[in-house]
């Protein structure tokens, strides 16, 4: 982290840092975090448009809370795979994980096909399976429509 960035983002003693969020996705990710009542009381710092040698510009979120709910982590994999999750204890990074695109999204998104039965019967759990390893495309297990990661990210379930 550049010395300039250290000045701009206060260090936290304990909690979670979501780093390397592509610039512009910081606010959508904040909105996502806002869905979890258990994170309601957490102190959160949102930073936008930091300089990054790797990404050019990036967003970053620091939460003084832990751990992240598992479903939130799964949704992050859908919305912004590639982000780094760091666990902080006594101002030190004690664990660091890069969020990967999984092979299966289990009931996280609605199907983009309006004529898919899962949209008519929303209690049905959706499943989207990766076409092949490395692909950014997923197939609805029900209607077999192929959806891109971006399309699914735009159709997150409640």
């Amino acid at each position: 982290m550049t010395p300039q960035n250290i000045l701009l983002i206060p260090k936290i003693e304990r909690g979670i840092v979501i780093d390397h969020i592509p610039a512009g996705l910081g606010i959508p990710v904040m909105a996502l975090i806002g869905r979890w009542p258990e994170l309601e009381d957490a102190v959160i710092t949102l930073g936008l448009n930091y300089k990054s040698t790797r990404m050019g510009r990036k967003d970053m979120i620091k939460l003084q809370a832990e751990p992240l709910p598992p479903r939130l982590l799964q949704m992050l994999a859908l919305v912004c795979a590639g982000v780094t999750i760091k666990r902080i204890d006594r101002f030190e990074v004690v664990e660091k994980v890069v969020v990967q695109v999984p092979e299966l999204f289990d009931n996280l998104a609605r199907c983009i096909n309006p004529n898919c039965i899962t949209n008519a019967e929303p209690h049905v759990a959706t499943r989207f399976k990766r076409l092949e390893s490395g692909s950014k495309h997923f197939k609805c297990a029900h209607c077999e429509r192929v959806c891109s990661l971006d399309e699914l990210a735009g159709h997150l379930k409640a």
């Binding site: 004529n115 898919c116 039965i117 049905v124 297990a141 029900h142 209607c143 077999e144």
Partner: peptide, 10 residues
């Protein structure tokens, strides 16, 4: 048989 896609799988 159903007019919606995905019904047979469901």
């Amino acid at each position: 048989r159903h007019p919606k896609e995905g019904t047979a799988r469901l």
